[in-house]
Amino acid sequence: MVRPAGSGWTDGAETKQRARHGDTGTHSRPVSRTLRPERLAPYVLVAPAVLIIVALRLWPLLLGVNFSFTGDGEDNGTAVGWANYLELFEDPLFRGALRNVGLLVLLLPVAVAIPGLLATFIYLRVPGHRVFRSVYFFPAVLSPVIVGAIFNLMLAFDGPLNTVLGTIGIGPIDWLGDPDVAMFTVVGVQIWATFGMALVVFLAGFATLDSALLDAARMDGASLPQIIWHVIIPSLSRTIQFVFVTTMIGMLTSMFGLLYVMTSGGPEGSTYLPEYYIWIQQGQMNRPALASAASTVLFLIMLVVGLLQISVLRRAGRED
């Protein structure tokens, strides 16, 4: 016997069958009530971190921005508008610090390429790769003060590096006393001291790399530079973005120890960075409002540079 679809008999039979199994057809409300806590769970878990960020990061940032529009000394607490910012950009030391930020941006690809290439060699299991992994990370555990003291001895005018250069006919170089060389020297030391962390990040990125792509490239006769350019870089685009941004932030906010120990901002203010300028204004000149203005400018620089880096790298990844 053929039962017509949608007939009352069919609906009644299905209702009786559901009743026998304890299904009354009204189970949607209890299910939605049980799902509601599950939907709230992610927000509850994230809430403590958000509160900590707001309380310890965003709120102090807003207070600092507000404080940057007040005066120092006799005008302490008095609104002065944009006076602190105008004074900043009239100060040759701060303008020099901004030029050095531009230098850091230009040298950033080198700071990222070094750990990237070393991580590639370790991933490809060059002889001794396990030892190299430990050796490369070792500088990252040293204090910047210790690193600066070590390189002060090595890079002294009569130090061992100039002695070695003298044996091959290269005259002594004033690594830390020449205004045209000192900033490059400090940045080089910073790269050496911190590339271990970027190396670890790259190695973590290599863990997600499909080894079949490397095998296919080798079978096609690709050289190592071709494998790096056409396989590794596109596959690790997100890792490279992360390393670019974190390395730039580290250069702008973590070089104070090296600058203080190696050059103290000299010679002739050639190694000033905004971070060091902020410390001078706050700690030595007792000008907290001007230091707050410099901190706000530094934050905006990091924000703009980070967003530009991400957009450029994303565009390059889409083109690949």
Rank of each mutant, 00 (worst) to 15 (best):
Ile53His: 13
Trp192Val: 01
Leu224Ala: 09
Pro60Cys: 03
Arg57Ala: 14
Pro60Glu: 02
Asp174Ser: 13
His27Ala: 12
Phe138Tyr: 08
Ile280Arg: 11
Thr70Asn: 15
Leu56Trp: 13
Tyr277Arg: 01
Val164Gln: 07
Ala111Lys: 07
Arg57Asn: 14
Trp59Thr: 08
Gly25Met: 04
Tyr136Asp: 00
Leu252Pro: 00
Ser292Asp: 15
Arg314Glu: 12
Leu273Val: 14
Asp72Phe: 09
Ser68Met: 01
Ala291Met: 09
Glu87Arg: 13
Phe195Asn: 02
Ala293Leu: 04
Ala79Lys: 14
Ala97Asn: 07
Thr120Cys: 04
Met302Ala: 13
Pro30Trp: 10
Trp59Ala: 12
Gly317Arg: 15
Gly96Met: 10
Leu56His: 12
Ser134Pro: 03
Leu298Ala: 01
Arg29Trp: 13
Thr15Phe: 06
Thr246Met: 14
Thr26Gln: 11
Glu90Val: 04
Gly6Thr: 02
Leu40Gly: 12
Thr10Gln: 10
Leu86Phe: 04
Leu63Gly: 14
Phe151Asn: 02
Ala5Phe: 04
Val200Met: 12
Gly166Pro: 07
Thr26Phe: 08
Leu307Val: 09
Thr296Ser: 13
Asp158Ser: 13
Gly205His: 01
Thr34His: 15
Phe69Ala: 05
Pro115Phe: 01
Asp174Glu: 09
Gly169Asn: 06
Val201Lys: 11
Arg95Ala: 05
Glu90Trp: 09
Thr163Met: 13
Ile228Ala: 13
Leu98Trp: 10
Phe206Asp: 11
Arg125Gln: 13
Ala55Ser: 14
Ala19Gly: 06
Gly71Gln: 07
Asp75Leu: 15
Met1Lys: 11
Ile278Ser: 01
Leu45His: 08
Leu236Trp: 01
Pro139Val: 00
Thr296Glu: 05
Phe195Trp: 11
Thr263Gln: 03
Gly81Cys: 10
Leu45Asn: 11
Ala182Ile: 00
Leu63Asp: 15
